[in-house]
Structure formats: C-alpha cells, structure tokens
Amino acid sequence: RTRTSFTAEQLYRLEMEFQRCQYVVGRERTELARQLNLSETQVKVWFQNRRTKQKK
C-alpha cells in the first residue's frame, strides 16, 4: 500500500472537521471524502491516526 500525501487544502479541511467532531462516520465521512477527492478509507484512517496523535 502506498502512503497518501495529503494536500495543504485537504489537511486544512480534515483538521477543521476534527476540531468540530473527532469521529466522522456514515454520510458525513462519505461526503467529506467526496469533497476532498479521497476514499472513505483514507478519511477514516486519517481520523484514527489524528485521534492517536492527540492522545500522546
């Protein structure tokens, strides 16, 4: 599997969503992935990694 390189715009949007809600599921995840031109899996994993980073 190749590592995803997020654009600055994608990271900004993901961070904004994370500040709003640390868990994104269902339709929200589908819509966010579509808007950012990413897969739902990429969005899901980004949120998982971001929550892990916050715990440290």
Rank of each mutant, 00 (worst) to 15 (best):
38 L>F: 02
43 V>W: 01
56 K>A: 06
51 R>Y: 11
5 S>C: 08
44 K>E: 13
18 F>H: 00
48 Q>F: 14
34 R>Y: 02
15 E>F: 04
23 Y>N: 14
48 Q>R: 09
56 K>N: 14
3 R>D: 15
36 L>D: 03
16 M>L: 12
41 T>M: 14
22 Q>P: 10
54 Q>D: 14
46 W>A: 00
51 R>K: 05
49 N>D: 12
40 E>R: 03
44 K>M: 11
1 R>C: 13
47 F>I: 02
38 L>C: 08
42 Q>G: 03
52 T>W: 06
39 S>F: 04
18 F>N: 02
18 F>I: 02
20 R>P: 00
28 E>L: 05
26 G>E: 07
31 E>H: 04
22 Q>S: 11
42 Q>T: 15
5 S>T: 14
22 Q>N: 07
45 V>K: 07
15 E>H: 00
54 Q>N: 08
6 F>E: 03
17 E>D: 02
27 R>Q: 13
3 R>Y: 14
38 L>P: 00
6 F>K: 04
19 Q>A: 12
4 T>L: 15
42 Q>N: 07
49 N>G: 11
25 V>M: 05
55 K>G: 13
51 R>E: 06
35 Q>F: 06
40 E>L: 02
25 V>L: 10
10 Q>G: 02
25 V>W: 03
2 T>Q: 14
8 A>Q: 06
42 Q>Y: 13
28 E>W: 04
28 E>Q: 05
28 E>M: 04
45 V>Q: 11
25 V>T: 11
13 R>T: 10
14 L>V: 03
53 K>M: 10
51 R>F: 08
52 T>V: 12
53 K>T: 15
13 R>P: 01
49 N>F: 03
27 R>V: 12
55 K>I: 07
22 Q>A: 12
15 E>N: 03
9 E>A: 07
33 A>H: 00
1 R>D: 15
30 T>G: 08
20 R>V: 09
24 V>N: 07
39 S>R: 04
15 E>T: 03
35 Q>H: 09
6 F>S: 02
32 L>P: 02
44 K>A: 13
50 R>D: 00
48 Q>P: 00
39 S>P: 13
41 T>C: 15
43 V>C: 04
54 Q>A: 13
20 R>S: 12
16 M>Q: 13
31 E>A: 03
16 M>N: 05
42 Q>E: 15
45 V>D: 15
53 K>P: 10
5 S>W: 08
51 R>C: 11
47 F>H: 02
31 E>Q: 05
34 R>M: 07
4 T>G: 07
31 E>N: 13
21 C>A: 09
50 R>H: 03
20 R>A: 08
30 T>H: 07
12 Y>A: 13
53 K>A: 13
26 G>F: 07
25 V>C: 14
15 E>K: 03
42 Q>H: 15
43 V>Q: 01
16 M>G: 10
13 R>V: 06
8 A>N: 13
35 Q>E: 12
36 L>P: 02
14 L>T: 01
48 Q>V: 10
18 F>R: 01
46 W>T: 00
39 S>W: 00
17 E>Y: 08
25 V>F: 11
16 M>W: 06
53 K>H: 08
17 E>K: 03
48 Q>K: 14
54 Q>L: 12
54 Q>F: 07
52 T>A: 10
16 M>F: 07
24 V>M: 09
10 Q>M: 06
4 T>E: 15
39 S>I: 00
31 E>D: 07
46 W>G: 01
33 A>Y: 02
2 T>G: 13
33 A>D: 00
47 F>W: 02
19 Q>P: 02
9 E>C: 06
40 E>A: 08
55 K>C: 11
36 L>G: 00
44 K>R: 08
30 T>L: 04
23 Y>P: 01
49 N>M: 04
31 E>P: 02
40 E>W: 02
51 R>H: 12
52 T>E: 14
21 C>G: 09
23 Y>E: 13
18 F>S: 03
44 K>N: 12
54 Q>R: 07
30 T>F: 03
11 L>P: 01
56 K>G: 15
34 R>F: 02
48 Q>N: 05
18 F>W: 08
55 K>H: 09
31 E>Y: 00
53 K>C: 15
31 E>F: 01
31 E>I: 05
33 A>V: 01
8 A>W: 05
4 T>S: 11
41 T>D: 14
53 K>L: 15
14 L>A: 02
12 Y>P: 00
27 R>P: 13
32 L>E: 01
24 V>F: 05
53 K>S: 15
44 K>S: 14
40 E>K: 02
5 S>K: 02
37 N>V: 04
23 Y>K: 13
10 Q>T: 11
28 E>F: 04
14 L>N: 03
23 Y>F: 11
5 S>H: 08
48 Q>G: 06
13 R>F: 06
2 T>I: 11
47 F>R: 01
42 Q>P: 01
17 E>C: 08
48 Q>E: 08
19 Q>L: 12
25 V>S: 11
45 V>C: 13
48 Q>T: 11
53 K>D: 15
42 Q>F: 07
56 K>H: 09
48 Q>Y: 06
3 R>S: 15
35 Q>T: 08
23 Y>L: 13
53 K>V: 14
41 T>I: 04
5 S>Q: 13
31 E>K: 03
18 F>D: 03
14 L>P: 00
41 T>W: 10
21 C>Y: 05
6 F>C: 03
2 T>Y: 06
32 L>F: 05
49 N>W: 10
39 S>Y: 02
34 R>W: 04
13 R>W: 08
6 F>Y: 10
40 E>F: 00
20 R>Y: 04
54 Q>Y: 06
42 Q>C: 03
40 E>I: 03
38 L>E: 01
4 T>H: 04
24 V>Q: 03
33 A>K: 00
50 R>M: 12
44 K>V: 12
54 Q>T: 06
53 K>F: 15
10 Q>I: 07
48 Q>I: 07
21 C>W: 03
56 K>F: 05
20 R>D: 14
52 T>H: 07
5 S>P: 10
15 E>R: 01
25 V>K: 08
17 E>N: 04
51 R>P: 02
27 R>A: 14
26 G>T: 04
27 R>N: 14
21 C>S: 12
37 N>C: 12
33 A>M: 00
14 L>I: 03
55 K>A: 14
12 Y>Q: 15
17 E>R: 04
9 E>K: 04
45 V>L: 14
22 Q>R: 06
56 K>R: 10
25 V>A: 13
39 S>A: 09
37 N>H: 11
9 E>R: 04
21 C>F: 08
55 K>W: 10
32 L>K: 03
55 K>N: 14
48 Q>H: 04
52 T>Y: 09
23 Y>D: 09
55 K>F: 08
15 E>L: 04
19 Q>V: 09
38 L>R: 03
14 L>M: 05
42 Q>I: 13
11 L>Y: 06
37 N>I: 07
22 Q>C: 11
26 G>M: 05
51 R>S: 08
18 F>P: 00
21 C>K: 09
13 R>C: 09
4 T>A: 08
34 R>E: 07
10 Q>R: 02
10 Q>K: 03
21 C>T: 12
51 R>T: 08
5 S>M: 14
50 R>W: 00
35 Q>I: 07
33 A>R: 00
7 T>M: 04
16 M>E: 14
46 W>E: 01
12 Y>T: 13
8 A>I: 05
39 S>N: 13
52 T>Q: 09
18 F>L: 00
52 T>S: 11
48 Q>C: 11
35 Q>Y: 05
49 N>R: 07
56 K>L: 08
30 T>W: 10
24 V>G: 04
4 T>C: 09
35 Q>K: 14
55 K>R: 08
4 T>I: 08
4 T>N: 13
19 Q>G: 10
53 K>Q: 14
3 R>A: 12
52 T>M: 15
3 R>V: 14
22 Q>I: 05
2 T>L: 05
32 L>H: 07
18 F>E: 00
3 R>H: 15
31 E>L: 04
50 R>K: 12
37 N>T: 07
